[in-house]
Structure formats: C-alpha cells, structure tokens
Design a protein around this nucleic acid. Structure first.
Length: 196
DNA sequence: GGAATGATGTACT
DNA sequence: GTACATCATTCCG
C-alpha cells in the first residue's frame, strides 16, 4: 500500500472528449511545467469551456484569425492568447474537423514550486498565486511561445493521480458579456483557490 | 467589504 | 473608435 498515488501523464485519449466534458474532467488534474531544474505544479480547480456553434463568447465564433489560429488545431494542443493587451491566458484545445473549441484554465491550487511562483508573481499568499487565468500563466512561467504547441509532448503537460475523485460544480462563465446563460464553468467544490 | 479605474494588444465597426 | 475569456491599485463606505 503506497501513501502516494501514482501519477501518469495524460494522453491523446483523454483530450478526445467533447469540450464541455473535458472541461469537467480537467478539474482535479495536475498542470505541470518543467523549466530546466524547476518543476512547477498546480491542481486545476476552475475551467471554462468555449465552444463554436451557438457560443458568441468564444474567440472562434467570428472565425479564424492570426490570434486564435491554435484554437483550430488538434485535441491536446496549447492555445495561449493575450487578453486586454496585458495578460496571457492558457487553453486546452479540443478542436475537431476545423471547428475551433477549447477549455480555458482559470485557476490552480499551487502544489509544487510555490517559492518560484511567488518570485514570478511578486506576491506571498498562496491564494494569490494562481487564482485567475492571467495569474496562473505568470506563476508557471508560460508565455505565447507555447502557443501552438501540445500538452502531449514537451515541457508543459497534464497528469492524473490514480484513483483520484473530485466533486465538481457547474455554473455560468464569468468575465464575459455574451452567452452568460450557458453553464460552462466548472469548479472544484469547496476549493479556496478559485478566481472569484 | 465593494466599486471604479488605468494599463493596452488584437480584432472588429 | 470601441470592445474584450484581466489584474492591481485606488477610492469609498
């Protein structure tokens, strides 16, 4: 009997799920960024699904542009975009047959590398490190250089823990003005590390 | 506690 | 010119 459950890197079968299903399934998984000797890890506690048809809040709704091109790639691809001209946000692409869809990672519970995250963020409280889409990208040292890459190969990837189970809540997405009636935001029940 | 505000790249009217 | 999948700071109660 091991006290530490086995971790395994998530593969292509995991990312093949329908977008909203994957958004829910990502809750509780570990986001890992290896930066040389550094290993920065956070548990995903908040996600939002951005669809194509019938979702005017999605970047893909107005068609493909230079900025959102990665959203039209393949399941498991990385989409990083610049928000409000200042902050970068990280997405897991779920595109299928030219249909641009993705899952926005909105908040993490810091697990490993808290000190390094604090240095990058210039904050001390663990709650302030990754409690927002722009914050977690800065804390983990992610940049637009990762845009168009893949979670299936490279230094930025996802892990699951064997036997792990999480209670997930669903509700309306936040920070948007269109399609606010859709319940496409998923959160880890009771987590103190959510964005709001 | 909450509301208002400034910073500012990309895409669209 | 305006809107936007944001954040930190500044004001007010």
């Amino acid at each position: 009997m091991s006290e530490v459950s086995a971790r395994s890197r998530l593969g292509s079968d995991f990312f093949a799920a329908e977008t909203a299903v994957l958004a829910r399934g990502l809750i509780g998984t570990l986001l890992v960024h290896e930066l040389g000797e550094q290993r920065l890890v956070g548990r995903i506690v908040e996600t939002e699904a951005y669809l194509s048809e019938g979702d005017p809040a999605s970047h893909s709704a107005a068609g493909k542009t230079a900025r959102n091109a990665s959203m039209f790639g393949s399941p498991g691809d990385i989409y990083v975009y610049l928000s409000y001209g200042l902050h970068h946000c990280l997405n897991v692409v779920t595109a299928r047959e030219g249909v641009g869809e993705a899952v926005l990672i909105r908040a993490l519970e810091p697990i490993e590398g808290l000190e390094e995250m604090g240095a990058r963020r210039a904050v001390d409280s663990p709650r302030a490190l990754c409690s927002g889409p722009g914050k977690l990208v800065q804390a983990l040292g992610i940049s637009r250089e990762q845009d168009g890459g893949s979670f299936l190969a490279g230094s930025l990837y996802l892990e699951s823990e064997a036997g792990a189970h999480f209670k997930v809540n669903a509700g309306p997405r936040i920070g948007i003005s269109k399609a606010t009636e859709l319940e496409l935001r998923f959160t880890l029940a009771g987590s103190p590390f959510l964005s709001r």
